[in-house]
Design a protein around this nucleic acid. Structure first.
Length: 600
RNA sequence: GGCCCCGUAGCUCAGUGGAUAGAGCAACAGCCUUCUAAGCUGUGGGUCACACGUUCGAAUCGUGUCGGGGUCACCA
């Protein structure tokens, strides 16, 4: 229960004693007091005035008096401005809050819900390397998984690899025709980039052939179908489905190159999966499923042999499930996979991290499951996130405006290196330590940048201005952490951390200063933010919180000294505040997949 | 055209019923002999797209208009 709720419960109790009727949480609001007013929490009185036939001032005074008197010193005093009753917490309350929170955060409080959830994310095609869009997807998927875990759920991270289909054959054909036996090893290229180059090569060649045919008098639509390289590709897809050994061998070889490249990138990004599904397997499940559905009359066949489902009941159009020639379409494998997921893992929820362009697709998938009486239809959740666009418009691979994931990471790590060298604070670091620090900072900046925005919203990335290292950024938060650790290292010289953080209870005589008060109250909110992040499946909630926490600490830090505090008691309090802040920063950043350095 | 999402400072974004709408960047002015200046403090910057409505109270809820995007494939 959050502290706001505690206060509301106290207010309800007081109101009931004062007026002899019952009240509920919906009758009035309790908020945090705005900084320009005195107080910590505010009871908004307006909604109570009419039913109680009171004036704002009279009600404020009655309720304020009662709250101060009846809660064992919870509040020190109050003030009433217009319809707002502002309550100030007593120092004793603040110490208690800190103490309780300290125990929860530093020694762990396990939340209650215990759902089995699968989070599917990344889901790349094996014909080209990962790009900026994948990065947003990967960071959101990974972070949401960790946030759900931190709230006590069993989470399986999964990925579906789109490893078959005409687009995969395109890069295969191009390699066969133009590579002269080159490999990633022989060209010293990362496998996914190597294969991606042949995908581009295919498109160049295809365009050339179409143009040639048109110049020979073929009309465009025909030329597009008749271009020799396209016909060869279609033939290859058929050969693949029939399992022709040479094609399968090539397919395995090239996908192997791509996986090696992906693994490298995932490793660097810190992304991991408990289960990887392959479309080359799930599409067979889907086909089998369609066969059954056709038998029991859930689906129908048109004259050309294609198979459909009627979704008019959900006011959607008929949906194609299998082509006339028996090959499967995009949604066919999805149906196979959804069934497999729920049957094998007994899930309470299956979350798909997919772009918002596929909202309709996911709606259709859900509707198909529902129509087929699959009980898990309502446990499918599409976590749709907005596309990442560039200031110059959309990313298009054909126009070469795609921001490559590996390139961007390299660039960020380089920038981190440059900044660090300019500041020159870690000259005593070894090569290894420096390398690690640059990765921590570069990736931290990038992840924070992509996660601080609400996933649902589209976001715009300006490739000209590189991602910042100042202000509302990962490195800002990392820096705050490093500064705290620096203080604690110095203090650890005279006493160990245990006794440093022992207790602030014996400082009751001291006044808690405004900046200390602010920190204590802000720290208390963390557990709420955690559950909010899980409820909304939204890492940006965490990112925003941890930034404000760091900001609050920095203000405190510049005003008050920890090591040279006015008294030993003050020092104990400030050490405890520092330890708490560092612990929460580390934990929150971990949920975003961001490491924090001891020094920077 | 139908359905869905979005519109808040010059830019990138917070803020889903409460007080004078906030941050970061950019601009300007200050702060390092004291725990790390990747920091802190301050100044300027707003018709919360527009209109009407609901409410004691609306950026937030409802309706409509305008503007931007997505989608409605035998592409994935």
């Amino acid at each position: 229960m959050s502290f706001t709720n505690t206060i509301q419960a106290a207010a309800i109790k007081s109101l009931e004693e004062l007026y002899g009727t019952t009240f509920s949480a919906n009758d009035f609001q309790v908020n945090e007091t705005k900084p320009e007013f005195t107080g910590d929490y505010t009871v908004v009185l307006f909604s109570l005035l009419k039913p109680l036939k009171e004036s704002p001032d009279a009600l404020g005074k009655k309720l304020g008096d009662a709250l101060v008197k009846n809660n064992g010193g919870l509040f020190s005093n109050y003030n009433v401005i217009k319809g707002f009753l502002n309550l100030s917490l007593s120092d004793a309350t603040l110490f208690n809050l800190l103490e309780e929170n300290y125990k929860d955060v530093c020694f762990g409080k396990k939340p209650l819900n215990h759902k089995k959830v699968m989070v599917e994310y990344s889901s790349p095609n094996t014909n080209k390397p990962l790009h900026l869009g994948h990065l947003r997807n990967i960071f959101i998927g990974w972070s949401v998984s960790e946030i759900l875990k931190a709230n006590g759920n069993d989470v399986y991270k999964s990925s579906i690899v789109n490893d078959r289909g005409i687009h995969i054959c395109k890069s295969m054909i191009a390699w066969e025709q133009f590579a002269n036996g080159d490999t990633p090893e022989s060209t010293h290229k990362k496998g996914d980039h190597f294969v991606g180059d042949y995908y581009v090569k295919f498109n160049d060649e295809y365009k050339k052939e179409v143009k040639e045919l048109i110049s020979e008098g073929t009309i465009e639509a025909v030329a597009e179908k008749e271009a020799p390289i396209m016909k060869q590709t279609q033939q290859m897809l058929q050969d693949w489905e029939q399992g022709k050994p040479a094609v399968i061998e090539l397919w395995n070889k090239m996908n192997g190159w791509v996986y090696k490249g992906f693994d490298e990138t995932y490793k660097r990004l810190g992304a991991d999966f408990d289960q990887t599904f392959y479309e080359s397997q799930t599409y067979l499940l889907g086909k089998e499923f369609v066969r059954q559905g056709l038998e029991d009359g859930s689906f129908f066949r048109k004259e050309d042999g294609s198979v459909w489902i009627d979704l008019s009941a959900a006011s959607l159009d008929d949906k194609l499930l299998l082509r006339g020639d028996g090959t499967s379409v995009y949604i066919t494998q999805d149906i196979g996979l959804v069934k497999q997921k729920f049957e094998e893992y007994n899930l309470d929820e299956s979350i798909y991290v997919i772009g918002d362009e596929q909202i309709h697709h996911m709606k259709v998938l859900k509707e198909i499951c529902r129509k087929l009486g699959m009980t898990f239809a309502d446990k499918i959740f599409h976590l749709s996130y907005g596309m990442v666009e560039l200031t110059t418009g959309k990313m298009k691979s054909r126009e070469g405006t795609v921001v490559d994931a590996d390139d961007l990471v390299d660039e960020m790590v380089d920038t981190a290196k440059r900044h660090t060298e300019e500041l020159g604070k870690v000259k005593d670091f070894t090569e290894e330590e420096l390398k690690e620090l640059y990765e921590t900072l570069g990736l931290g900046a990038m992840k924070f940048y992509l996660l601080r925005v609400d996933p649902k919203k589209r976001m715009i990335f300006n490739p000209e201005e590189s991602i910042d290292f100042h202000g509302f950024t990962g490195p800002f938060v990392q820096y705050t952490y490093a500064r705290i650790k620096s203080i604690l290292r110095k203090l650890a010289g005279d006493s160990d951390e245990q006794s440093m953080t022992a207790s602030s209870r014996n400082i009751a005589g001291e006044n808690v200063l405004p900046l200390e008060r602010q920190l204590i109250i802000f720290l208390e909110k963390y557990s709420n933010v955690l559950s909010q992040g899980a409820d909304e499946l939204n890492p940006s909630v965490i990112a925003n919180y941890v930034f404000h926490l760091a900001k609050t600490y920095n203000s405190f830090y510049t005003e008050h000294s920890v090591a040279n505090a006015e008294s030993e008691e003050k020092k104990a309090l400030r050490v405890q505040l520092s330890v708490m802040t560092a612990t929460i920063i580390k934990s929150a950043m971990q949920l975003l997949g961001i490491k924090v350095p001891e020094r920077m």
